[in-house]
Amino acid sequence: MAAGVKVVPVILVIGPTKWRSRYRARISPEIEASLPKWWHRRGDPVPWPVDMRACLADALRKEHQPATIMEAEAQRRTSPLETGFFLELLEKLPVGRFFAFWPRGANPAGLLWEFPLLVERAGTPPVTPDTVHVFPQDGVGDWDPETGLFEFTEKGYRTTYQRDISRCGFQIWRWSDYPTLIEIVRRVGRYAPPVKR
Protein backbone atom coordinates (compact mmCIF):
# COMPACT_ATOMS: atom_id res chain seq x y z
CA MET A 1 0.00 0.00 0.00
CA ALA A 2 1.31 3.45 -0.88
CA ALA A 3 2.69 5.46 2.00
CA GLY A 4 0.43 8.25 3.18
CA VAL A 5 -2.75 6.63 1.87
CA LYS A 6 -5.37 6.72 4.61
CA VAL A 7 -7.08 3.36 5.05
CA VAL A 8 -10.72 3.81 5.95
CA PRO A 9 -12.11 0.95 8.06
CA VAL A 10 -15.04 -0.81 6.46
CA ILE A 11 -18.39 -1.81 7.96
CA LEU A 12 -18.89 -5.54 7.50
CA VAL A 13 -22.60 -6.40 7.35
CA ILE A 14 -22.90 -9.89 8.78
CA GLY A 15 -25.94 -12.08 9.32
CA PRO A 16 -27.91 -14.97 7.89
CA THR A 17 -27.96 -15.96 4.22
CA LYS A 18 -31.27 -17.77 3.84
CA TRP A 19 -34.73 -17.92 5.32
CA ARG A 20 -35.88 -20.91 7.28
CA SER A 21 -37.77 -23.39 5.17
CA ARG A 22 -41.36 -22.29 4.59
CA TYR A 23 -40.70 -18.77 5.89
CA ARG A 24 -41.04 -15.89 3.47
CA ALA A 25 -40.39 -12.31 4.49
CA ARG A 26 -42.51 -9.45 3.27
CA ILE A 27 -40.30 -6.95 1.51
CA SER A 28 -41.87 -3.71 0.43
CA PRO A 29 -41.58 -2.55 -3.22
CA GLU A 30 -39.42 0.46 -2.38
CA ILE A 31 -36.82 -1.89 -0.87
CA GLU A 32 -36.93 -4.20 -3.89
CA ALA A 33 -35.76 -1.31 -6.04
CA SER A 34 -32.51 -1.04 -4.08
CA LEU A 35 -31.74 -4.76 -3.92
CA PRO A 36 -28.63 -6.07 -5.70
CA LYS A 37 -29.09 -7.33 -9.28
CA TRP A 38 -28.19 -10.94 -8.52
CA TRP A 39 -31.33 -11.81 -6.56
CA HIS A 40 -33.47 -11.56 -9.70
CA ARG A 41 -31.27 -14.18 -11.36
CA ARG A 42 -31.87 -16.65 -8.53
CA GLY A 43 -35.47 -16.96 -9.65
CA ASP A 44 -36.87 -16.73 -6.13
CA PRO A 45 -39.78 -14.26 -5.88
CA VAL A 46 -38.63 -13.14 -2.43
CA PRO A 47 -35.14 -11.75 -1.72
CA TRP A 48 -32.99 -13.70 0.71
CA PRO A 49 -31.38 -12.26 3.84
CA VAL A 50 -28.08 -12.09 1.94
CA ASP A 51 -29.77 -9.76 -0.58
CA MET A 52 -30.98 -7.59 2.26
CA ARG A 53 -27.45 -7.44 3.66
CA ALA A 54 -26.20 -6.27 0.28
CA CYS A 55 -28.98 -3.68 0.27
CA LEU A 56 -27.91 -2.43 3.73
CA ALA A 57 -24.26 -2.20 2.64
CA ASP A 58 -25.42 -0.21 -0.37
CA ALA A 59 -27.46 2.13 1.85
CA LEU A 60 -24.36 2.73 3.98
CA ARG A 61 -22.18 3.42 0.95
CA LYS A 62 -24.71 6.04 -0.16
CA GLU A 63 -24.05 7.69 3.21
CA HIS A 64 -20.33 7.68 2.33
CA GLN A 65 -19.64 4.90 4.82
CA PRO A 66 -17.57 2.12 3.22
CA ALA A 67 -19.49 -1.11 3.76
CA THR A 68 -19.58 -4.59 2.33
CA ILE A 69 -20.76 -8.15 2.87
CA MET A 70 -18.57 -11.23 2.99
CA GLU A 71 -20.09 -12.68 -0.19
CA ALA A 72 -19.09 -9.61 -2.21
CA GLU A 73 -15.41 -9.97 -1.28
CA ALA A 74 -14.80 -13.39 -2.86
CA GLN A 75 -11.93 -12.00 -4.98
CA ARG A 76 -9.91 -11.46 -1.78
CA ARG A 77 -10.18 -15.08 -0.68
CA THR A 78 -6.95 -17.01 -0.25
CA SER A 79 -8.01 -19.39 2.50
CA PRO A 80 -9.99 -22.47 1.43
CA LEU A 81 -11.85 -22.36 4.75
CA GLU A 82 -14.80 -20.09 5.49
CA THR A 83 -13.42 -19.26 8.93
CA GLY A 84 -10.02 -18.43 7.43
CA PHE A 85 -11.68 -16.18 4.84
CA PHE A 86 -13.66 -14.35 7.52
CA LEU A 87 -10.53 -13.73 9.58
CA GLU A 88 -8.61 -12.65 6.47
CA LEU A 89 -11.26 -10.06 5.71
CA LEU A 90 -10.96 -8.54 9.18
CA GLU A 91 -7.35 -7.63 8.38
CA LYS A 92 -7.46 -7.09 4.63
CA LEU A 93 -10.39 -4.71 4.34
CA PRO A 94 -9.73 -3.73 7.26
CA VAL A 95 -12.99 -4.04 9.18
CA GLY A 96 -13.78 -1.21 11.58
CA ARG A 97 -17.35 -2.07 12.57
CA PHE A 98 -19.73 -5.01 12.41
CA PHE A 99 -23.42 -4.56 11.65
CA ALA A 100 -25.26 -7.80 12.39
CA PHE A 101 -28.56 -8.02 10.50
CA TRP A 102 -30.91 -10.32 12.40
CA PRO A 103 -34.34 -10.66 10.74
CA ARG A 104 -37.25 -12.75 11.92
CA GLY A 105 -37.60 -16.14 10.26
CA ALA A 106 -34.03 -16.41 9.01
CA ASN A 107 -31.85 -19.46 9.28
CA PRO A 108 -29.43 -18.21 11.95
CA ALA A 109 -26.61 -20.66 11.20
CA GLY A 110 -24.40 -18.02 9.54
CA LEU A 111 -24.84 -15.52 12.34
CA LEU A 112 -24.28 -18.11 15.04
CA TRP A 113 -21.04 -19.07 13.29
CA GLU A 114 -19.86 -15.44 12.99
CA PHE A 115 -20.63 -14.43 16.56
CA PRO A 116 -18.25 -16.90 18.24
CA LEU A 117 -15.50 -15.73 15.87
CA LEU A 118 -16.08 -12.21 17.17
CA VAL A 119 -16.31 -13.40 20.77
CA GLU A 120 -12.84 -14.95 20.38
CA ARG A 121 -11.51 -11.46 19.67
CA ALA A 122 -13.68 -9.61 22.18
CA GLY A 123 -12.05 -6.51 23.60
CA THR A 124 -9.42 -6.31 20.84
CA PRO A 125 -10.06 -3.81 18.02
CA PRO A 126 -12.07 -3.99 15.88
CA VAL A 127 -14.22 -6.13 18.20
CA THR A 128 -15.27 -3.77 20.98
CA PRO A 129 -18.70 -2.92 22.41
CA ASP A 130 -18.60 0.32 20.40
CA THR A 131 -18.04 -1.38 17.06
CA VAL A 132 -20.41 -4.37 17.20
CA HIS A 133 -23.98 -3.34 16.35
CA VAL A 134 -26.77 -5.90 16.33
CA PHE A 135 -30.04 -5.15 14.50
CA PRO A 136 -32.70 -7.65 15.68
CA GLN A 137 -36.16 -7.37 14.16
CA ASP A 138 -39.17 -7.18 16.50
CA GLY A 139 -39.97 -10.79 17.23
CA VAL A 140 -36.33 -11.89 17.44
CA GLY A 141 -35.91 -10.22 20.79
CA ASP A 142 -37.27 -7.56 23.08
CA TRP A 143 -36.30 -5.84 26.32
CA ASP A 144 -38.21 -5.50 29.54
CA PRO A 145 -38.17 -2.07 31.22
CA GLU A 146 -38.88 -3.69 34.61
CA THR A 147 -36.01 -6.16 34.65
CA GLY A 148 -33.64 -4.42 32.24
CA LEU A 149 -33.12 -7.69 30.36
CA PHE A 150 -33.01 -8.23 26.61
CA GLU A 151 -34.55 -11.57 25.79
CA PHE A 152 -34.28 -13.54 22.58
CA THR A 153 -37.84 -14.52 21.89
CA GLU A 154 -37.69 -16.26 18.52
CA LYS A 155 -37.87 -19.99 18.97
CA GLY A 156 -35.15 -22.31 17.82
CA TYR A 157 -32.09 -20.16 18.42
CA ARG A 158 -29.20 -21.77 20.20
CA THR A 159 -29.06 -20.41 23.70
CA THR A 160 -25.44 -21.53 24.15
CA TYR A 161 -24.33 -19.11 21.44
CA GLN A 162 -26.53 -16.38 22.82
CA ARG A 163 -24.80 -16.76 26.16
CA ASP A 164 -21.44 -16.52 24.43
CA ILE A 165 -22.16 -13.28 22.62
CA SER A 166 -22.80 -11.46 25.89
CA ARG A 167 -19.05 -11.78 26.57
CA CYS A 168 -18.39 -9.57 23.59
CA GLY A 169 -20.50 -6.58 24.53
CA PHE A 170 -22.48 -4.93 21.75
CA GLN A 171 -25.16 -2.39 20.95
CA ILE A 172 -28.72 -3.26 20.01
CA TRP A 173 -30.83 -1.33 17.49
CA ARG A 174 -34.37 -2.71 17.15
CA TRP A 175 -36.53 -2.39 14.04
CA SER A 176 -39.95 -3.47 12.85
CA ASP A 177 -39.99 -3.22 9.04
CA TYR A 178 -37.43 -2.91 6.27
CA PRO A 179 -37.78 0.81 5.50
CA THR A 180 -37.27 1.48 9.23
CA LEU A 181 -34.25 -0.83 9.30
CA ILE A 182 -32.59 1.02 6.44
CA GLU A 183 -33.21 4.34 8.14
CA ILE A 184 -31.74 3.08 11.45
CA VAL A 185 -28.72 1.53 9.73
CA ARG A 186 -28.06 4.82 7.94
CA ARG A 187 -28.32 6.75 11.19
CA VAL A 188 -26.07 4.40 13.14
CA GLY A 189 -23.58 4.31 10.26
CA ARG A 190 -23.49 8.08 10.05
CA TYR A 191 -23.48 8.94 13.71
CA ALA A 192 -21.36 6.26 15.30
CA PRO A 193 -18.01 6.46 13.53
CA PRO A 194 -15.51 3.69 14.17
CA VAL A 195 -13.08 3.91 17.04
CA LYS A 196 -9.59 4.76 15.83
CA ARG A 197 -7.41 1.70 15.41
Binding site: P129, I165, S166, G169, F170
Partner: peptide, 9 residues
Protein backbone atom coordinates in the same frame (compact mmCIF):
# COMPACT_ATOMS: atom_id res chain seq x y z
CA UNK B 1 -30.07 6.50 16.70
CA UNK B 2 -29.93 8.71 19.81
CA UNK B 3 -29.79 6.04 22.54
CA UNK B 4 -28.34 2.58 22.21
CA UNK B 5 -29.36 -0.51 24.13
CA UNK B 6 -25.99 -1.76 25.19
CA UNK B 7 -25.06 -5.22 26.35
CA UNK B 8 -21.99 -4.49 28.49
CA UNK B 9 -19.00 -6.74 27.81
Amino acid sequence: GLVSLMVPP
